[in-house]
């Protein structure tokens, strides 16, 4: 192998990598917060709202979940200005990530709400809890506990998918990596470092979500033993 790795020229740019990573974290953090809010509202609309609202939210979910994020970013950034709505690259990126996560979160949270038996709701009524109390203590928190792992996985996917918004030069980590690659021509070194940064961020996010899960759901922990087979 005659190739000489030159990490030093790339590592000299570490400040820019860190800036890019910070913007990635900020973008995906905001997308996670706003996307979850959309998810809660969407799930409520689908389970409690009138039929026409259920239909509209359902169409939103299906369209977003069955088209790639890349095309959604293109439509928002290049397509909407053509019909008069303008965004900066970072705004388009945040908007696309939020709308994307919102659709997945809607479906995940709805599944959680529908997993709560209706009799629980009636039991809450018979204890003369208010509708809000019933929603909070009997439907939302238990539902959240059921779907927490799926929601957390979706958050991680959003963090990783944020690399795709580099196609509109949103200045996050992947965009920075592409610029540095263009300057130094050290593709492998640049993308190795970038990949390691993403892995670190993803593992960090998953650890934080796991800790948050322990704090949020303290009452019930069911641990199932894993089946391992003998033979190989």
């Amino acid at each position: 192998m005659s190739y000489r790795f030159q990490f030093d020229v790339v590592l000299a740019q570490s400040d820019r990598f860190i800036e890019g990573a910070a913007l990635t974290l900020q973008l995906s953090g905001e997308a996670i917060v706003f996307g979850t809010v959309i998810g809660i509202l969407g799930a409520l609309a689908r389970t409690e709202g009138p039929r026409w609202l259920d239909w509209i939210v359902g169409a939103y979910v299906e369209v977003i979940r069955n088209t790639p994020l890349l095309v959604q970013v293109f439509l928002l950034f290049f397509g909407l200005p053509a019909v008069g709505v303008k965004f900066t690259a970072t705004e388009a990126a945040l908007f696309a990530l939020t709308v994307n996560l919102g659709a997945y979160a809607t479906e995940i949270i709805r599944a959680g709400i529908e997993a709560i038996p209706h009799t629980q709701f009636e039991a809450g009524l018979s204890l003369s809890l208010t509708r809000l109390q019933i929603f909070r203590h009997i439907i939302f928190m238990p539902a959240l506990e059921i779907i927490y792992p799926a929601l957390g996985a979706q958050f991680t996917l959003t963090l990783l998918a944020s690399s795709i918004v580099s196609v509109v030069a949103a200045n996050e980590l992947t965009t920075v990596a592409q610029i540095i690659e263009g300057e130094t021509f050290r593709s492998i070194e640049v993308y190795t470092i970038t990949t390691l940064l993403y892995i670190a961020m993803a593992l960090g996010l998953r650890s934080i979500l796991a800790l948050l899960g322990l704090v949020l759901f303290r009452r019930r922990r069911v641990v199932q033993p894993q089946v391992r087979m003998s033979g190989i």
Binding site: L160, S162, S163, I164, Y191, T194, Y198, I199, A202
Partner: peptide, 12 residues
């Protein structure tokens, strides 16, 4: 792999 963006796998 599950902690890596698909785009990075493609680049690498």
């Amino acid at each position: 792999i599950q902690s890596t963006p698909v785009l990075m796998v493609v680049f690498l």
